[in-house]
Design a protein around this nucleic acid. Structure first.
Lengths: 227, 227
DNA sequence: GTCTATAGACAGATAGAC
DNA sequence: GTCTATCTGTCTATAGAC
């Protein structure tokens, strides 16, 4: 605790030593989080051994406990990092945008994010399926608030007659489910599409399907009511 | 192994005793599978302790190993039981049915099945996210074959002009994702809908949203091409 | 068919030399 | 900042009395 910067540290050398330690710390923490995310995605919290995280991160196990106090602390850090990434795709949904251009851009960015951050996506899915035991109240409030903000925009679009009436909360649920399924349940998707793994062009097909089914159903008809 | 039917068993009593044991066996195996499904759903395979299964099933732990040889055997039995249940909802999809009545009936039965078998649904989701390590080749082939059978029907409907063109495999993926999300990710859904838990009427809203977005987008337009 | 006791392996976490 | 050795507890699975 008190022992820092090595035995030969004197006043004046501490800043330089601290910077060096900081670099190592950042590199190692990143390696730990990366390794942990992959394992937590595959096996969940209880199923992931601290030893496995250490091996995959290329560090001795004891070092995990130097950078993080508990396995839970590693898990929570990974969740926080993921949630920070979720928000970005929602930026397309702005009141002044064209509803269908905005929603299509959102769908495409969401699919892309999941594809490029597959382990994080799966880890989060695992966390929710397990009953969200580690998702903090603050994280849940944040996700709730940003969703609410976007539902108001959908409601505005509906009120303006630019979209057919739809429950915006359920619409978001449908969009989340479809944009995450391909990555989270990749094994099923691969079996269904008869491919060993998913390529970008499969994600392009996914985007097209979502746009032509989910979103197309929301375009206002020329005859504004329906059979 | 050889010791059966208790000490006082004589020739002629064995059949009766065997029936009695059979009843106990069925009851206990069911209790074990039920308890295991709930726990596997929450914590995955590695995260679930045999002791917990036993406690929840109301049996001493050693009895688990009397009915099943390993924890994996329990897990596989639960998976098999679940897959047997998946097929039912697909029966609505018949070539001679109306496409939209058939698909709506499928969606509603699928949502209903997930709602009433939440633990099984979540356990299966957990298994796939984890990379499907225990899903047997035979199970995957079965799921693939039944899906293929139904995609042919969708293709026929499209060819007949009763539905807009769509990749049937992707359509099934979209329908699976939306009908399972509400149950598998119930925590997120509850936060989004601002409810402590999901009621049947929330599932009714879900069905309506899926029908009015996904399926509505597939109805052939009066003008058969599109902007 | 039930249950106690325990073997044997391995987990998370820590102490302290370097 | 790294790493060996180890503490303490828990796990799956089994042996064997009842």
């Amino acid at each position: 605790m008190a022992k820092k910067a090595g035995p030969r540290a004197k006043a004046g050398e501490q800043a330089g030593a601290a910077r060096g330690e900081e670099r190592i710390r950042q590199r190692n923490e990143k390696a730990i989080l990366r390794a942990a995310t992959t394992l937590f995605a595959k096996k969940g919290f209880d199923g992931t051994r601290a030893t496995e995280i250490a091996e995959r991160a290329g560090l001795p196990k004891a070092n995990l406990y130097y950078y993080f106090n508990t396995k839970e602390e590693i898990y929570r850090a990974a969740i926080r990092h993921l949630i920070a990434g979720w928000d970005k795709a929602l930026r397309h949904i702005r009141a002044d945008a064209d509803p269908f251009e905005a929603l299509e851009a959102y769908v495409r960015e969401k699919l892309d994010y999941a594809r490029k951050n597959a382990d994080e996506s799966r880890m989060f899915a695992n966390e929710i399926i397990s009953g969200a035991p580690f998702l903090s109240r603050a994280d849940r409030k944040h996700m709730h608030d940003i969703t609410l903000e976007k539902t108001l925009i959908i409601e505005q679009w509906v009120a303006e007659g630019r979209m057919r009436p739809v429950n915006p909360r359920h619409l978001f649920i449908v969009l989340w489910s479809t944009t995450q399924f391909y990555t989270n349940f990749e094994k099923i998707t691969c079996d269904t599409l008869e491919k060993p793994r998913l390529s970008p062009s499969d994600y392009e097909d996914a985007a097209r399907t979502i746009v032509e089914t989910v979103l197309r159903g929301l375009r206002p008809g020329k005859a504004s009511s329906d059979p």
